[in-house]
Design a protein around this nucleic acid. Structure first.
Length: 553
RNA sequence: GCUUCCGUAGUCCAAUGGAUAGAACACCUCCCUCCGAAGGAGGAGAUGCAGGUUCGAUUCCUGCCGGAAGCACCA
């Protein structure tokens, strides 16, 4: 990558100037007149050297003149920026590079094995929009790491035991439903949760049932549990397929629970007893004090999480593990991290968490078109319907499948367009419009590039740089930055860098596309090459985000 | 109350301490005999308030105002 070469060359100059430790960036400037890459190296170095920034910049620029392959011009501008301009030849070479399979790859995580845990829905409960969010982010992070050289193990951790299960089961047993449907299970959970809060007798009964589920002492309970659990998991699997995720490993609280209990028991120096429960006194460390084993002797989520770490290691070695989860449990995870430090000191740096906010709906009512609560599924269904309606106007074949791809793209884009940790305000009405700054906008730009390529192919035009114009435009100069964007997104676990970049690229392409004809134009062969470059970049970019890439829409 | 996170156009998101704060939706003008109008060209519109650090602050620090999350047997 040219960027790497610039960085290395500047670094060398800084060393000879006597400022070897100065940190600086080489970035794509916001303004094209500022070149293809810009660096603040002189500004940073000047501070350390106590010299005039522009002088330092001039000196570096002069030394690097004609030293970097592919750079034809270096300018000093503003307070002391050094701007680099790529030569025409190098630019054409990079555009042609987009046709390589390796376009977009980097080696930031070469030789690393990374376990990415995400989605984590709970059997006996709805797959809600938060799970959709976690899935979109987790899948994209997994793909970013793969494009950066890592071997990725996709893991899903599902809560198949615990009070939520007992709440749903309590109602199902009471109503004597032996073969529940997904809808019945969801309703039963909502009802059970309400009863648990409002009636102390029901609360006691549900707690007792919870214990029975753990120790599997009642045949009738076991039978219903087995059916409900299997049905939930099968249902989730259908959703993963639609969303484009294929997990390598599944973990369950029913296995991490017992392991967690053992770990807690084995470390009396870390935990203490209080009110019949086993707790970790986090307040000694400025953290929350939390219960690991409740007074019934059952492991809570905290103990289960410890068990999960051991379970993960048993199933597969990894250099580090990333858990994608919501902000909501940040404080709780700080407690877990402290306990890991005390119990598994070797693992402290291997367990990472990537937090995200809530997915909130603007309508507040949280109700779907059919009047039900908005679940992950109902949102997908509503969006799919909307996309289908749009496609009926266009009279395309194969509408079912494509409409679903568009719907998935719309949701994933909305989630992946913003930075980590922030809540996402999701406006169903707006996202239903499928226009502007959206997943479908990118998908549509891509299908246009494909249909243009089909037409070019029919006309027998071969892609080539032979008739390239003497001056190339903004589109080319934007294209060449794609691999850097992927690398940065992977390093920071921030898919939104890719999302933002692709939207800018698609806008540049749409603008170029509207400005004149390719087929029959003055630079026909080069035009086709450029369209191929855009097509590949949009496709790979959408794929790295986990957004489906329809060929027509 | 304590802790943490967040305040950018009317709305929803960008911006690695840098150059004229980028898009999109909505609003106002235009553009389909032409490779796909889910598109394009143009217009108007924003850093909560007050200090500080810095050559330079949306970004870092302090205070205030506003919002969100968490704070013992849920996950």
């Amino acid at each position: 990558m040219i960027r790497g070469a610039i960085h290395a060359a500047i670094k060398e100059e800084l060393i000879s100037l006597g400022a070897p430790d100065v940190s600086f960036v080489v970035e794509r400037p916001g303004e094209m007149s500022h070149g293809d890459y810009a660096s603040n190296a002189a500004l940073s170095a000047a501070k350390v050297l106590k010299r005039n920034p522009r002088e330092v910049a001039e000196e570096i620029a002069k030394k690097l003149e004609n030293k970097i392959d592919g750079i034809e011009k270096i300018e000093v501008a503003g307070a002391g920026f050094i701007n680099f301009f790529i030569s025409h030849q190098a630019l054409l070479r990079e555009v042609a590079n987009t046709q390589q399979d390796s376009w977009g790859k980097n080696d930031a995580y070469a030789n690393k094995t990374v376990m990415v845990e995400y989605t984590d829905p709970n059997p006996f409960k709805e797959f809600h929009i938060g799970h959709l969010m976690g899935n979109a982010i987790g899948e994209s992070i997994a793909r970013l790491l793969e494009w950066s050289g890592a071997e990725v193990i996709r893991a899903n951790y599902q809560g198949d035991v615990g009070p939520h299960v007992a709440k749903a089961m309590f109602v199902l047993l009471e109503q004597q439903i032996e073969n529940p449907t997904i809808a019945q299970i969801s309703l039963a959970y909502v009802e059970g949760a309400k009863r648990y809060e409002e009636h102390s007798a029901d609360k006691a009964a549900i707690d007792a049932l919870n214990k029975k589920i753990y120790d599997q002492s009642d045949e009738r309970v076991n039978a219903l549990y087995k059916k409900g659990r299997a049905l939930s998991l099968k249902h989730f699997e259908e959703l993963y397929k639609i969303l484009g995720t294929k997990f390598n490993l599944y973990f369950f609280e029913s296995e991490s629970g017992p392991k967690g209990l053992e770990i807690v028991k084995a470390h009396p120096e870390v935990f203490e007893h209080s009110d019949g429960a086993t707790i970790f006194r986090g307040e000694n460390y400025g953290l929350h004090t939390r219960v690991f084993v409740n007074s019934q002797g059952l492991p809570t989520y905290e103990a289960k999480e410890l068990g999960l770490i051991e379970t993960k290691l048993e199933k597969s070695a990894f250099d580090f593990s990333i858990t994608v989860t919501a902000n909501e449990i940040k404080d709780y995870f700080d407690v877990i991290r402290k306990v890991i430090e005390l119990v598994f000191p070797d693992l402290t740096d291997k367990i990472l968490v990537r937090f995200h906010g809530f997915l909130r709906l603007t309508t507040g009512k949280m109700s779907s078109r059919k009047g039900n609560v908005v679940t992950g599924e109902s949102l997908l269904e509503d969006l799919t319907e909307e996309a289908e309606a749009k496609m009926r106007e266009r009279k395309l074949a194969n509408t079912d499948e494509i409409a679903q791809q568009v719907a998935v793209g719309a949701i994933k884009y909305a989630v992946l367009k913003q930075g980590a940790g922030r809540d996402i305000i999701f406006d169903p009405e707006r996202s239903l419009s499928l226009e502007g700054d959206s997943g479908p906008y990118l998908q549509y730009a891509h299908t246009r590039s494909l249909s243009l390529l089909r037409a070019a192919n029919k006309a027998g035009i071969e892609a080539s740089v032979v008739d390239a114009p003497a001056e190339v435009g903004a589109l080319e100069r934007m294209l060449i930055h794609y691999p850097e964007v992927v690398e940065r997104a992977a390093k920071e676990l921030e898919p939104h860098y890719v999302t933002t970049y692709l939207t800018e690229l698609a806008a540049a392409f749409n603008s170029w596309y509207a400005s004149g004809r390719v087929i029959g134009g003055k630079h026909e062969q080069y035009g086709v090459l450029l369209v191929q470059a855009v097509e590949q970049t949009l496709k790979k970019g959408l794929q790295v985000l986990g957004i489906p890439v329809p060929e027509e829409m």
